[in-house]
Simulated assay, not measured.
Amino acid sequence: MSRLSRTHWAAITAVVLALLFAGAATMASAGGSDDSTSRTPPADSADAGFARDMSVHHQQAVEMSFVVRDRTRDDEVRRLAYDIANTQANQRGMMLGWLDLWGLPKLSADSEPMAWMGEEHAHGSGHGGHAGSPAGDGALMPGMATRADLDRLGKASGKQAEIEYLQLMIIHHNGGISMAEGCAKRCTVGPEKALAEGMVAAQRSEVELMVDLLHKRGAEVRTS
C-alpha cells in the first residue's frame, strides 16, 4: 500500500474516531453516566487547555489547506490538503463541542496559549521551527505559521505553492504532534486522551508523506 493510501486511511480513521468520541460524550452527558467526558475538568486543566489551543491550531491547518487547494492543480497535493482540512475540521468541531459540554470558554483571556503544558512548553519553546517565533508575528503555538508565512503562501502558485504548503504543514504537524503528546500525558478525559493519541499517529504518517512529496519537487524540509 502506498504512503498516500496509508494517509487516506489515517485521515478516515481519525474522522471515524472523532465521531465515535463525540457520540460517546453526548451519550454520557444525556445519560448522566460515570464516563469521564461528562465530568467538567477545571478551566486551567490540560483537558481544557488542549481543547482550546488545538482548536486554534487545527483552524490554521484548515485555512492553509483551502489556500493551497486554490493555488495548485496538482492532484496529490490537493487530495492531501482535502484530507487534512476534512479531518482537522471534524476534530476541531469535536473539541469545541466538549468545551460546550463542560461549560468552559472556547477562548481564555486568563492564560497564555500552551500554559497547560507547563515547564515542558517553556523549555521547548525555542525549538521546532516556529515554536519560538514571537507572538507579534502570529506564531502563538508550536508549529503555527506566521502572518508572513501565510502571506507568502497566498501569493504563490503552482509548484511553488505546493512547496510552501508542504514545508509549512510539516512544521505545523510537528508542533501539533508535540501538543497531542502533551495531552496524552496530561489529559484525564479518556476520549480526549484517545483522540490525542490518534492525532500523533495520523500526523506522523502525513509528515512522512509530505517529506516524500517535497523531495519529488526538489525541495527540502524547513526548520524555521
Rank of each mutant, 00 (worst) to 15 (best):
L166A: 06
A180Q: 02
M179I: 00
D151M: 12
V207H: 05
H130G: 02
S205H: 08
G124K: 12
E162M: 05
H172D: 03
A184W: 03
L195H: 02
A148T: 14
L195K: 01
H123G: 07
S125A: 13
Q167P: 01
A201Y: 11
P142M: 07
L168P: 00
S133R: 13
I171A: 13
Y165R: 00
H173N: 06
E119M: 13
M169P: 03
M114H: 05
G175D: 01
T188W: 03
G138K: 07
G198I: 09
A161L: 01
A135R: 12
A145Q: 08
S178Y: 10
H130L: 06
N174A: 09
P134S: 15
D212G: 06
A184Y: 04
A196L: 08
G126S: 13
H172N: 00
P134D: 15
Q160F: 04
T146A: 11
P191V: 12
P134C: 08
S178E: 08
R147K: 12
E197R: 15
L168C: 00
G176T: 02
R186H: 11
I170L: 04
W116S: 08
M117A: 11
L209W: 04
T146L: 11
L209I: 08
A145Y: 07
R147F: 15
R217P: 03
G176V: 08
E120I: 05
W116Y: 07
P134T: 07
G154N: 14
R147I: 14
K159G: 03
G126I: 09
I177W: 00
Q203F: 09
A161S: 02
A148N: 09
A180C: 01
S111N: 11
R186P: 00
G158S: 05
L153K: 07
S178C: 00
G132A: 09
A180L: 03
A196K: 02
M141T: 13
G129L: 03
G154D: 14
L150P: 02
M114L: 06
G143Y: 03
A201F: 13
W116T: 05
H127Y: 13
E206W: 10
M141Y: 09
D149A: 08
G190A: 15
E192H: 09
L214S: 09
K185L: 12
H172S: 01
A202D: 05
S157P: 00
P142T: 06
L195R: 03
L209K: 04
K216V: 04
E197W: 07
H130W: 10
L153W: 03
P134L: 14
M117H: 05
V207N: 12
L168R: 05
M169G: 00
D212W: 05
P142S: 08
M199H: 06
P191T: 07
P113Q: 09
S125C: 12
G124S: 15
M199A: 11
L166Y: 04
M179F: 02
I177D: 04
A201N: 12
L209S: 06
S205E: 15
H215M: 05
E197D: 11
L140N: 10
P191S: 11
L214P: 09
H215Y: 06
